[in-house]
Write a protein that binds this DNA or RNA. Structure first.
Lengths: 210, 210
DNA sequence: TAGATTGTTAATCGATTAACAATC
DNA sequence: TAGATTGTTAATCGATTAACAATC
């Protein structure tokens, strides 16, 4: 029932608008024009207005945008107005880092479980979250209304585990493994490929200093 | 002295080509055509050929591309044929996760130091890397030929530390803090904004299930 | 040689920017 | 009301895809 799909480029920018608006709110700014925001964010005012108008007219001529209202509206578009149950599979440093990062919780992403195949970690707690064995995955996902799984484990394991948890009803995968997952197309996959990020940095570093 | 600059879109794809070619090499494949590679990577053959021809003609008509040769050439373009000295500032879970990830080392990114303001961590070692106090930064960067700093600390601290280390000669920043750094334009900044990534996931999850 | 596949030019598509009428 | 600034259409720019001659 969605009109027509929004371009990836626009979606990619939305969280950044959200962040800037949040900061403006914190510093007590009530209204902002696209021109003003464009300068702070280092983009064009035209782009801001075009982006927002994909979702509706949030501003008012002669006034600009109400910061708090726009923040909340973008929050709704991004789905951070609702709680999302999340688990982390792979309780190594990276998995623990994510489990510890309470800012995700503020945006509605609630880490409810941490899984690992290493028995030595069972019972260990990160904040209030206990490390559980992999054979508890099915039950846990069903019982705790888990939509999202962060995969912080080696690529071979990630591929297998991904297929498994999709069976169990996981709707979205936050993939930190260095591989592309092939899953049914209604499953949302968001990749965080750190080595690719580092290689882009390296490219720019190399080009800069010719 | 560089001809004309390569578009961001192309640069973004290069590491992924590199990864696929590496995997092909591992499985003993010697040559590959753009058509074949395009199917594996789920992109068009035309795009692959266009992308590669930004940097030169690496293929041969009627044959395709030699996998190992192309892998190495893209490696050179990305600068992973050379060693790059790196430090990590912020020795929390995320900093330690990166320090522990030996795959970066394989691609030439050598983590030489780990810094934190928390005295309790001094002397602690992650692999062979010792946690050092912040007031050793200047000396360490100069003495160890450090080009890259990964910033894995809270945003307020990240902003200050970034300015400081640029003074000390850091050339590129791998920024994990949830803020945009404003630095001289010859400094390379590669952002990894995990909460923005999670919000994009959330957007797609929300749109999917209307 | 004939077949395959590149390198590259041309055509298409999509995203960004500019411009301005609508309107608060 | 006059000034400011949006929402939106039109113009430009850039990136992707298609097509094909060159050539191994």
């Amino acid at each position: 029932m969605n009109k027509e799909s929004i371009s990836r480029a626009v979606v990619k920018r939305l969280p950044r608008y959200h962040r800037y608006l949040g900061e403006l709110m914190e510093s007590g700014v009530e209204r902002i024009s696209s021109g003003d925001l464009s300068q702070r964010m280092n983009v064009t005012a035209s782009q801001i207005r075009q982006d927002l108008n994909n979702f509706g007219g949030f501003g008012q001529q002669g006034y600009g945008y109400n910061v708090e209202y726009l923040y909340n509206e973008i929050g709704k578009i991004l789905g951070v107005d609702k709680k999302h149950g999340m688990i982390i599979i792979g309780a190594g440093n990276l998995g623990q880092a994510i489990a510890n990062y309470t800012n995700f919780e503020k945006r509605g992403f609630v880490v409810k479980g941490l899984f690992d195949k290493n028995e030595a970690l069972y019972g260990k707690k990160v904040r209030e979250i206990e490390v559980l064995p992999m054979d508890k995955l099915k039950e846990f996902i069903a019982d705790n209304n888990i939509e999202i799984a962060a995969l912080t484990l080696p690529k071979n394991e990630a591929v297998k585990v991904a297929e498994e948890i999709v069976e169990y009803g996981i709707k979205a995968i936050w993939n930190f493994a260095h591989t592309d997952l092939k899953l049914p197309k209604d499953i949302v996959i968001e990749n965080v490929h750190l080595s690719e990020s580092l290689m882009r940095l390296s490219y720019n570093l190399t080009r800069n200093h010719l």
